[in-house]
Nucleic acid binder design. Structure first.
Lengths: 228, 228
DNA sequence: ACCTGAACACCGTTCAAGT
DNA sequence: ACCTGAACACCGTTCAAGT
């Protein structure tokens, strides 16, 4: 024990891939994507740029690993009760993870686009697909049904990822400003946006997100679950 | 007339914001996002960097304008027949625009995240929301219903934006490879992905996209349209 | 008003050299 | 095997200077 402690004190901390990813997440959480630079990493880790590149291939790979680490944590949960509740829990898990890590939304989108079946996407599909298959949906519809749910969840989390961090006051102000802006749009070009300006002012992102999940679940039940 | 031609020949082409945006779209279409640099623009337009910055604020603004131009074209259509068909047409319009302009997916995502109610998002919401309101959905549900549709469409177009440009052969190969990879996943960690590996090999992106739109439309009908 | 283009302050990444 | 850190080849953006 004493020896172990002594050793780790002497060598301080070994530079590992994990420690780099961890530090990357810290930098991203603290100051956003632009703050994650190789130079910032070498500063925090008291090392040189070559050391970083010894452990990770490049910046994209590091961002991918950071996103995967956060998503894995967000989705690591015991199997839930009813499949529908499990789906809602997974969806909210992602929604809240993106709220806590604002950089995550852009990173999820980037990976979905660049590498549509990379580890992060796979993880999300698996987490949503498992309860979908327990829902009574015919096997042939598992892929399409799960895709629809996942795509909705990712689209929705993207748009609502920048909710005013912290103050509910800011949030209300933001909604009121947007609502007013929609009222002032050209009636010929934007009749619909003007019509929903009031709903914009009063809506709650998280609640609306769940309503959307339920809407998709209703569609799934109506289309695929017999005798419902 | 002759004078006009003469003038435009003499001054060649005036540098305008539109011409810069146009050239930006050309560069993006030809070689992707990394190819759009201020230096590439000055080369093509035979001008200096300061001239670019005289007309546009910065690179982000240029990307936003490029996306808006492409989306505006993709969504500019006469009012369609039945609302459901109109919704499908708008969705496919975006889907195909992203297929034609692969850089657009990432740009739409970036703007959705950075500026959730910017001009592009507004345009898309309006195009989807108008037929939604004609669908018989109660007014109070217009915002939520339209959001669900739009979020699904954006999530789905993002993941399927990188379909092998050109050759269907490549596409089949890509699907087969992914399908095989899923088969080889850890059975404990990824039972669902393994179960749908066959569906992956045989699915068609565009068809699956439309199936998803129909699923959401079914949910809307079941929840909000009385006597259906 | 509109444009030029050198200069500035950054990047990610590489690589000879060290241990 | 693992790390150092100077050097390279890029970026976006600014700004004094021109017309």
């Amino acid at each position: 024990m004493a020896v172990r402690t002594h050793q780790s004190q002497r060598r301080r901390q070994v530079l590992t891939r994990e420690r780099i990813v961890e530090t990357a997440v810290e930098l991203l959480d603290a100051s956003g994507k632009d703050a994650l630079t190789v130079r910032a990493l070498t500063g925090r880790l008291a090392t040189g740029s070559g050391a970083i590149y010894w452990h990770i291939g490049n910046m994209d790979e590091l961002l991918e690993a950071a996103a995967d680490a956060v998503v894995a944590t967000a989705l690591a949960r015991p199997a839930e009760v009813a499949p529908q509740d499990e789906i809602r829990a997974v969806a909210l898990g992602l929604f809240d993870a993106v709220a806590e890590h604002p950089w995550l939304a852009a990173q999820l989108a980037a990976q979905l686009i660049r590498n549509p079946w990379g580890p992060v996407t796979l993880r999300i599909f698996e987490s949503v697909g498992r309860p979908v298959s327990a829902l009574g949906v015919p096997r042939d519809d598992w892929f399409t049904t799960t895709s629809t749910l996942v795509h909705y969840v990712l689209g929705a989390t993207a748009q609502t990822s920048q909710r005013a961090d912290g103050f509910e006051v800011d949030r209300a102000e933001f909604l009121a400003t947007a609502s007013r802006a929609w009222r002032d749009l050209d009636p010929d070009d934007y009749p619909f946006m003007r019509a929903i300006a009031d709903q914009m002012r009063e809506h709650d992102d998280r609640e609306q997100f769940l309503t959307g999940v339920n809407l998709v679940l209703t569609g799934i039940a109506a289309l695929h679950i017999k005798g419902d």
